[in-house]
């Protein structure tokens, strides 16, 4: 399988504090790579750094996307090259309707100078179909972006965007948190669909319950900013059974 993303000896400082202390990770196309770890282990920092968040200073190491370093690119350029981050808790943006937002990001990808009028009207049909697929009502389009969205609506909205924007690499930060069983099952189905399309998926999660519905190909466990263990799905199930103490002792 072709390598999509390569994280090499990544050391990252946030607010003067070293959070990632030399992380290596390889993600292939058509693969689900789970990153697990206890609270504060650096999972979200890894996601944010890959995506290019300001204030996340890379002090050593590199991030290669399709073999090219992206560590000096701003977030928007990484996104346009094909990286996507599904947020654990996406921010609310009052005043911007969900439809307005979707039109802007679609148009940007299509190179339209005007971000307000949908360049390709056929995309509207696609949006309606995807709303149906992820289980969101069409009325969500007239609501403001993430304002008053329930936990489930936020997750589904993030998955809708992952499907709509057709990125190459999809990082999902705790996509199952706060969901009921039906919600987790739905998210798992979408992840499987994305994998079937050949996307490279980095699945960040604290718990392994999502893996009851979608099995990862690889698992990397972070503890205290370092890779504490790597393995297959059996590693995730072991952690689910015995807790992170297992890898701390290794």
């Amino acid at each position: 399988m072709q390598t999509a993303l390569k994280v090499q000896n990544l050391k990252v400082r946030v607010g003067g504090k070293e959070i990632l202390k030399g992380v290596d990770l390889e993600l292939n196309y058509g693969e689900i790579h789970a990153v697990m770890g206890p609270n504060g282990s650096g999972k979200s920092t890894l996601a944010y750094t890959i995506m290019g968040r300001e204030g996340y200073e890379i002090v050593e190491g590199d991030i290669l996307f399709d073999g090219v370093s992206i560590k000096d690119l701003p977030a928007d350029e990484r996104a346009l090259r094909g990286l996507f981050l599904g947020f654990q808790e996406p921010p609310s943006i009052p005043g911007v309707r969900f439809s307005t937002f979707l039109i802007a990001v679609i148009n940007k990808r299509m190179g339209a100078p005007d971000l307000t009028t949908l360049k390709d009207p056929k995309k509207l049909r696609e949006i309606y179909n995807l709303l149906n697929e992820v289980g969101l009502n069409r009325s969500v389009l007239s609501r403001e972006l993430n304002v008053g969205f329930s936990g489930g609506e936020k997750k589904r909205s993030e998955m809708l965007q992952a499907l709509l924007l057709d990125p190459k690499v999809i990082i999902l930060d705790e996509p199952d948190s706060g969901l009921d069983v039906d919600g987790v099952r739905k998210i798992a189905e979408i992840i499987k669909e994305l994998k079937a399309k050949g996307k490279a998926i980095l699945l960040i999660t604290h718990y392994a319950r999502l893996f009851n519905f979608v099995e990862p190909d690889k698992v990397t466990v972070l503890v205290d900013g370092k890779v504490a263990a790597t393995g297959g799905p059996e590693l995730a199930h072991m952690i689910e059974e015995k807790g992170y103490q297992v890898v701390r002792q290794q």
Binding site: D76, K108, R109, L115
Partner: peptide
């Protein structure tokens, strides 16, 4: 950052 991860620059985010 959120809007950046969707491909919008800072100026475009403000415009949006």
């Amino acid at each position: 950052f959120y809007l950046g991860t969707r491909g919008l620059s800072k100026d475009e985010a403000r415009e949006l």
